[in-house]
Design a protein around this nucleic acid. Sequence first.
DNA 1: ATTATATAGAACCATATGGTGTTATGTCAA
DNA 2: TTGACATAACACCATATGGTTCTATATAAT
Lengths: 110, 110
Amino acid sequence: MNAEAHKVDVFQAVADPTRREVLQLLSESSQSIAELSSHFDVSRTAVVKHLNVLTKAGLVRGEKNGREKIYYLQPEPLQELKDWLAYYEKFWYNKLAKLKYAVENDTLNK
Amino acid sequence: MNAEAHKVDVFQAVADPTRREVLQLLSESSQSIAELSSHFDVSRTAVVKHLNVLTKAGLVRGEKNGREKIYYLQPEPLQELKDWLAYYEKFWYNKLAKLKYAVENDTLNK
DNA sequence: ATTATATAGAACCATATGGTGTTATGTCAA
DNA sequence: TTGACATAACACCATATGGTTCTATATAAT
């Protein structure tokens, strides 16, 4: 399988809480599958499956090192998420602005 | 079911492409279920299911209006996503900074 | 050489998910 | 009041997802 091919949507990849925890751990330090698995209740196989999903989303990269495989965070695909969010920010900031206005008005009318 | 109770994770809610399209449409204008469904290939029942998920995530709100039910975008829960992303931004911006540095160095060495 | 360690991969399983169609129920209009 | 319209609710289905265990292979250490 080609790790470069983003076969998994970043939204999908990030939807699972375990995968988000994997990303968190890898952001603190690159580590082997064994090390990573020690932080979870689920089996090593399950962790590997999550790593595969994250790899296909381009969010992590695994490098063989002797008999270990070290995984690294690769955060760039999160940019897509950020761009998506940027569009919606104006909507909730507008709402907050309206709320602020209403609150200030109420205060003035007292 | 209590629409206020965020029973569905915002990451999960946003993971589905159809649901993202629903959010997009609602950001353009609030509209009824029938109106919304007309934009999709899937059945109205399927769209309603997606609306239920989005409602449980607090991302939309439906208001009965006569025999119609109008849905509105409610973008505030996206803040959670934004906060989550903010943590990772430093990682990819660091990487970009490093790349920029390398590129500039190569240029200088020519 | 032999044993222990680290990962890979296959086979399997239960439940969640996204979809369907059909049947009520409530509301507007003629 | 009758028919058309909009939504609600139910029953059902196929596949995806997240998980398991067991087996195989490659590398390190004794």
